[in-house]
Design a binder for these strands. Structure first.
Lengths: 239, 239
DNA sequence: CTTCACAGGTCAACGGTGTTGTCGTAAGGT
DNA sequence: ACCTTACGACAACACCGTTGACCTGTGAAG
């Protein structure tokens, strides 16, 4: 074996595969993302990716040490894409809401990658840029430093956590996802009022609510609480 | 094949395996949890579980239709364990805070299981009991039904999502976890103020905050927002 | 232009996975 | 003591990630 993976800079001998494709780390990442998007999260396997590229599966190991390595590269690409289109306007609440929803949407677009990368701190350029931007928004809004950090931390983790949670939902095989919807419709909607009064009373709302992600609601709750805190601080300072 | 899985009530012929173990859904779930705890999440496979039980892997299909089915049973068992020690006092905010922290702690106690099951709706006994309990607390507190469901949904998902997120963190190999802490200490704590003013200004707080979970803070923010909403509703009704 | 080292694509194999069809046997009801 | 049948065992299938050995065309050096 010795060293299988060669750093991208040193690559030069661009030999095409048997089927005429010239491989590159970029092409592999892009193809992987396309595969995930088109055929669901479980469509991503080294062998399938190889087939989609028109190359032997083992060729990929010349570019990535193992599948995890590939996943991180994919995640990195995703962070970049999300951040690239965020333009803070100066309204802290609207800006954070926008960014939160974008992060969540980005995760849902690539469930498998989101699940694997949510809990990792990369310390890379894109991530640092995001941290600086969010804390900046909060400080400019008037939050004192410890408060800004607390809210930053909760905000980011919430976006990542819900992104991963909801991604896991969409990554399920179609049959399992339908089974879940059925559980709410069939089991919860028909519990008798004498044994389960609260579920019976709210069944209609439950079935409707469970159909969609609770992230927007949770995000708004977080922002509302932050707003309340800010109002409180202002009142304390002004009066 | 016909029907392979027999409902637990109908079981009677308790034939021991070749190695003398008498199987049961309970025993299988318990063994699976033990396996996950001791050897990590990837230690859970039908074949390994069979080996750990002293039974042929295919025997498990007499108790669970497929692996997913087994995962749901594991998840429900965890919910049950958490719920078993929760005693609502009547103070809705304190009760939900208590339950949220318990769920989070329960997830951290079984990181791998939490990660695998956080996103599943089981529709099983313990879960139903939890739903009834939480919505009951909210309705008794005075939230109208749609509001109660919205908050219930956000509350539960947030507890599960953070549970899974933080579990993923603790499930990392020790080396990787230390590397992450280092990133905060070394990279973020030393960014120059002229390029990253906001990070530089709050670095001290950042390093401290990132060491621990943001779930308690996020939970308090959610409860604060709910309280605000409740006050608002009361003011509207009373005045 | 020719030569030739070796990057990088390919092949075959290993040990793992979930899942299913078939079969034998011992447990329980009669 | 017999019969039925639940249920555990076995073998097979198609897939997975990963590796070591092999072979060939590329691109630079002479």
């Amino acid at each position: 074996m010795s060293e299988r993976v060669v750093p991208p800079a040193a690559r030069q001998r661009r030999r095409p595969t048997k089927q005429g494709v010239v491989l590159s780390a970029e092409l592999i990442v892009d193809t992987a993302l396309r595969l995930i998007e088109e055929h669901g999260a479980d469509a991503l396997s080294v062998r399938r990716l190889g087939r989609a590229l028109g190359a032997d599966p083992s060729s990929l190991y010349r570019y990535f040490r193992h599948t995890d390595d590939l996943m991180l590269a994919i995640a990195d690409e995703l962070i970049g894409r999300t951040l690239r289109v965020w333009r803070p306007t100066g309204d802290w609440r609207a800006d954070l809401r926008e960014l939160g929803l974008r992060m969540h949407a980005g995760a849902l677009a690539h469930p498998r990658a989101a699940m694997l990368s949510a809990h990792r701190v990369t310390g890379r350029a894109h991530e640092i840029q995001a941290v600086e931007g969010i804390i900046g928004v909060l400080r400019r809004a008037g939050f004192p430093d410890p408060e800004a950090v607390r809210i930053y931390h909760a905000f980011v983790d919430q976006a990542l956590a819900f992104g991963a949670l909801d991604s896991a939902g969409t990554a399920l095989p179609r049959a399992a996802r339908e089974a879940e919807a059925e559980v709410w419709r069939d089991t919860y909607a028909h519990l008798p009022a004498d044994t389960h009064p609260h579920i019976a009373a709210t069944a209609r709302h439950l079935v409707a609510s469970m159909r969609s992600s609770s992230y927007p609601a949770a995000l708004d709750l977080l922002l509302t609480a932050a707003q309340t805190r800010l109002d409180h601080l202002r009142a304390g300072t002004d009066g």
